[in-house]
């Protein structure tokens, strides 16, 4: 890994190839403990200078707006922007190959030893900790809504519908998303 001095890529000259896209996203895949987006920003903006910070934010906005895992969408969009379909495939393969092998190995170990009392207790603690991770993520996503009554109301209705009333997700989203967009007349 080399320190990259140039902050802005020159159009047409610094474009990463298929191999570099695979390598860059491979490094995100193996580093990305507890959420991959901070690592993606580090690699793409700070280490390799593939995108300026504002371009990164802009592309990320699309990836959060589309369905699916944000980091997967991001890999596809960035790979496609630089190298078309081959670039998208290379970024995606780089991102997922190592973590898939690791997670299946862990899964096999859990299958073999998960029945032992000590392992079972460890997983009980691990699961409670993982809940804390999701809870913290949820609060971080909700943080920009502070002081925005409309946003908080929409989030509250979504929470109520799924967690308390146990309504199915698809109809809930089909009603709430257009309603929320319609109510947000002016950008904050």
């Amino acid at each position: 890994m080399q320190p990259i001095p140039h902050p802005e890529p020159q159009p047409g000259t610094g474009l990463p190839g298929v191999g570099a896209l695979f390598g860059g996203f491979f490094s995100i895949g193996i580093c990305g403990f507890g959420g991959t987006l901070p690592w993606a920003r580090r690699m793409v903006v700070e280490q390799r200078g593939w995108l300026a910070a504002s371009e990164f934010t802009d592309l990320l906005a699309l990836c959060q707006f589309l369905p699916g895992p944000n980091i997967v969408n991001f890999a596809v969009c960035l790979g496609a922007r630089f190298r078309g379909p081959a670039g998208a495939a290379a970024a995606l393969a780089g991102l997922l190959s190592a973590p898939m092998v690791i997670v299946m190995t862990l899964g096999a170990l859990y299958g073999a030893y998960g029945g032992h009392a000590v392992v079972g207790r460890a997983f009980h603690g691990l699961a409670a900790a993982a809940s804390g991770l999701v809870l913290a993520t949820a609060l971080q996503i909700a943080a920009p809504l502070r002081g925005r009554a409309l946003g908080l109301a929409v989030a509250g209705v979504a929470l109520l519908a799924i967690a308390v009333l146990r309504l199915p997700l698809l109809p809930t989203m089909l009603v709430l998303a257009p309603l929320s967009v319609a109510l947000h007349r002016t950008p904050r």
Partner: peptide
Amino acid sequence: AGLTPVTAGLVM
């Protein structure tokens, strides 16, 4: 701006 609160509520 409209989708952010929906996502926040669903993740919560």
